[in-house]
Nucleic acid binder design. Sequence first.
DNA 1: CTGATCATGTAAGGGGTTACATGATTTT
DNA 2: AAAATCATGTAACCCCTTACATGATCAG
Lengths: 180, 180
Amino acid sequence: MARSNTLQYMILGLLTRTPMTGYDIKQTFDKEKAEFWTAPFSQIYPELNRLLKSDLIELTNDDDVNTRKKTYQITDNGQNYFKEWLLLPISDSATELSNDDFVLRLHFLGNTHGDFLRKLLELRRQTLKVEIAQLELELSEVTNHPEQYGRELIIQKELANKKADVKLWTKAIKNPLTEI
Amino acid sequence: MARSNTLQYMILGLLTRTPMTGYDIKQTFDKEKAEFWTAPFSQIYPELNRLLKSDLIELTNDDDVNTRKKTYQITDNGQNYFKEWLLLPISDSATELSNDDFVLRLHFLGNTHGDFLRKLLELRRQTLKVEIAQLELELSEVTNHPEQYGRELIIQKELANKKADVKLWTKAIKNPLTEI
DNA sequence: CTGATCATGTAAGGGGTTACATGATTTT
DNA sequence: AAAATCATGTAACCCCTTACATGATCAG
């Protein structure tokens, strides 16, 4: 249980847009730096074969028979599976949303799903506020303890980051894309 | 090769301060939330035994003979090994310093090592500036591409975070602890 | 005397990295 | 003709997580 499997969703997400080969997927990861995450071929190819067996993706018939090239497309099954995952943090009444979970989903939200996007941002903002309160408490415990100066700087860094995030998501909630 | 092994350095770093048991180490991780990182017993105990075999730590004689309690202290060997790692990003003319590497080292820098701390912050600031330039380029490529709105938000978030970091480290370089 | 905390481990399995292996196609 | 890029994989190894196993000590 608890199979996080980021790669699985990254691949499915990319294939919701257009059919691709394993090689293409790797290129996309490297070029887009996706959300600052990548995977080697040795992870991508086995994962593709696993998804194929699970009937979440399938081979297209576009490939020249003489090449080894294998172009994959997502199945209806895969579409549903991916969408279910994408919407999970909202339908689930989970009160927490880690940065990784959040970023991974955000990556696949374009101009569609405007409503869902807003809810996702709201949820993340809530999580951040709780974390900020916690960090402020920790910070108050280390100030004036010069031997923990390094740790104090780390806490300040995390605080600054999370506060910047709250600001950004607040702005994004107020000014949705539709206004552009 | 390329054994990153965060845990190894966390343990050695804690033991430079005071002798501890595996249980104490776990407590410290959980309480201090270290630098937002923790490890389970199933990782800590085997690692302690490995460090013991490598002669980087040793058992103290403080423990009651009748208990299973094992209090460890760092050896001279371990001290050297740890210090070498701590100073690596400077002595090494590596031009990059990842956030994880940076934070891990920062955690063990108190009011001592003021000079080294400044160099470390400087180095990190340089890395950040390069990354910011890269992100600004990526951002310019996705704006006005509504289908990549999610990715745009991610890039903006990363940019905001890195900029906040630069600001913070600049301030820390200018106002060292000695002024407190 | 019962439950919380102290205390140390092993086992199984997932996920990720690095290195290795192979060969076709395209560019220079 | 050589080098770069396209293209798909396997093998070994490390790190980390979850679950399991065991028992002592201390507080209520």
